[in-house]
Amino acid sequence: PAHPYDRLKTTSTDPVSDIDVTRREAYLSSEEFKEKFGMTKEAFYKLPKWKQNKFKMAVQLF
């Protein structure tokens, strides 16, 4: 299930529990994912792991 970005980011005051914290981005809706990352999930997962992590750090999901 998708969760709002505000509850997934590492600085959230009301974090979602029971998620894989190493894959926070996977819980974003497709729309919100595209808004935050500027690309689709499919394109994101084709990137090298280090680049994925760099993007995730930039949007507080790492």
Score class of each variant (00 low, 15 high):
60 Q>C: 15
17 S>G: 11
30 S>Q: 12
10 T>Y: 12
48 P>F: 11
48 P>N: 05
21 V>Q: 09
49 K>S: 07
16 V>T: 06
4 P>M: 06
50 W>N: 05
14 D>C: 12
16 V>A: 08
25 E>N: 02
33 F>K: 00
57 M>Q: 13
21 V>H: 09
44 F>P: 00
11 T>L: 02
52 Q>Y: 01
52 Q>K: 01
16 V>E: 05
55 F>D: 02
54 K>E: 14
32 E>F: 06
28 L>N: 03
39 M>E: 01
32 E>A: 04
1 P>F: 09
42 E>L: 11
14 D>R: 04
5 Y>S: 06
58 A>S: 11
6 D>G: 00
36 K>M: 12
57 M>D: 10
58 A>P: 01
53 N>D: 15
10 T>G: 03
57 M>G: 04
25 E>Y: 06
31 E>P: 06
24 R>Q: 06
35 E>F: 06
16 V>C: 11
58 A>H: 09
29 S>R: 06
25 E>T: 05
34 K>I: 14
41 K>V: 03
31 E>G: 08
37 F>A: 00
56 K>E: 03
62 F>A: 12
41 K>H: 09
53 N>E: 07
8 L>N: 07
11 T>Y: 06
7 R>L: 11
25 E>W: 02
53 N>F: 04
3 H>A: 04
29 S>F: 05
12 S>V: 01
36 K>Y: 15
20 D>Q: 00
5 Y>G: 04
52 Q>S: 01
2 A>D: 11
13 T>S: 09
27 Y>R: 01
61 L>T: 00
25 E>H: 00
21 V>Y: 10
1 P>S: 10
19 I>T: 04
58 A>D: 14
1 P>L: 12
22 T>F: 07
39 M>R: 01
24 R>K: 06
34 K>F: 15
56 K>S: 02
48 P>V: 00
2 A>S: 15
58 A>I: 10
5 Y>M: 02
30 S>G: 12
12 S>K: 02
19 I>A: 09
37 F>S: 00
52 Q>I: 02
26 A>N: 08
12 S>N: 04
13 T>M: 11
27 Y>N: 03
37 F>K: 02
44 F>Y: 07
23 R>I: 12
37 F>C: 12
36 K>V: 15
53 N>V: 12
2 A>P: 15
5 Y>C: 13
53 N>H: 08
26 A>T: 05
20 D>A: 04
6 D>S: 00
40 T>W: 06
33 F>V: 00
31 E>T: 13
31 E>H: 12
37 F>Y: 06
17 S>R: 10
33 F>I: 01
45 Y>G: 07
27 Y>M: 01
1 P>K: 15
20 D>H: 03
37 F>R: 00
4 P>E: 10
44 F>H: 00
27 Y>T: 05
59 V>F: 10
16 V>Y: 07
31 E>N: 07
49 K>E: 09
19 I>P: 03
29 S>G: 06
36 K>N: 10
12 S>M: 06
35 E>Q: 13
7 R>P: 12
52 Q>M: 02
51 K>A: 14
47 L>T: 00
41 K>Y: 08
16 V>K: 02
56 K>P: 11
2 A>G: 11
50 W>C: 09
23 R>W: 08
41 K>I: 11
33 F>P: 05
42 E>R: 08
13 T>A: 08
42 E>A: 10
19 I>M: 00
45 Y>P: 00
32 E>L: 02
36 K>D: 03
46 K>P: 00
14 D>I: 05
36 K>Q: 12
20 D>S: 03
49 K>N: 04
24 R>F: 04
23 R>K: 14
2 A>I: 15
62 F>T: 14
33 F>G: 00
15 P>K: 04
14 D>N: 13
44 F>R: 00
4 P>D: 09
60 Q>F: 12
62 F>M: 13
9 K>G: 11
